[in-house]
Simulated scan of single mutants.
Amino acid sequence: MIEQLWLIGIGTGSPEHITREGAKALREAAAVLLPRKGPGKDDLATLRLNILQDVGSPAQVLDFDMPVRDETLPYQARVAKWHDEIAQIWESTLAAAEVEGPVALLVWGDPGLYDSTLRIAGRLSPKPALRVVPGITALQALTAAHAVPFNTIDGSVCVTTGQQLRENGMPAGVETVLVMLDGQCSFQSLEERPLYIWWGAFLGMEEQLLRAGPLHEVGSGIVKLRAEARATHGWIMDTYMLRRTPD
């Protein structure tokens, strides 16, 4: 049984992203749940282990294999089933270890922005006392890497997903759109001009890749670069910002 569950945002890949609050929490945690995401994705586990070492955490590391989503199900049902399975794995992993004290999870980016960890935690029974330590988001890392602001003067900003962009296009009345969870480069479906894009992958890591420019000029190059990077590393995390009129 998990009595205390701490969800700690660790940023987008740089060990420097961990906050002092996050570092202190990791030193005080009794155990850390560490997901293993399959062949070719060991970098993600290694990064988390390096952070624990850097902050001097004595926590017991409990690794577990992430389940695979059932692609035959509709999207909402697929995700719900996947979350149920992850929650069950957390419970069985901790029951086998008999941990006493707070259990931590190192969450990529921030636990409150397009991350499912809080929803999975809500499936635990009995529900543990939750503590959330915020982290640097991919959106912050993206705009910092490109040295651009989120918004124009008095301009509105929308954060959405690749699926929403494909289905609905650029939202009406919004100058700036930040897109997450887009494995299909959904900006390819946009015919509107002018649109400007700022794209980044492996943000905060040594492998960081950045591209920016008018979408109709640089879009195809981003698609090619993304495919090459994913083939090289076996995985990729990227995000991008679109703006109707660049400053």
Rank of each mutant, 00 (worst) to 15 (best):
L44Q: 05
V61K: 04
A25S: 10
V32I: 10
E191H: 09
R211D: 11
V148Y: 08
E91Q: 15
L165S: 10
H233Q: 12
R193I: 02
D154S: 12
I120A: 08
A87P: 02
L7E: 06
D54L: 09
A212G: 10
R243A: 07
V103H: 05
A212H: 13
I197H: 05
A25I: 04
P149K: 06
M241S: 01
D84P: 00
G109H: 06
S156T: 13
P35M: 10
R211H: 12
M180P: 01
K127V: 06
L195P: 01
G200V: 03
D154Q: 13
D238V: 08
R69I: 10
P35G: 09
G155E: 12
W82E: 15
A31N: 02
P102L: 06
P246Y: 15
P246T: 15
A145N: 01
E207N: 11
K127H: 09
A59P: 02
A138W: 00
N50W: 02
E228I: 03
A23Q: 05
D154I: 05
A138M: 13
Y114R: 03
T12V: 08
G135C: 02
A147I: 05
T232A: 14
P171N: 05
I222P: 05
D54M: 13
P214S: 15
R69E: 13
A95Y: 04
Q140Y: 01
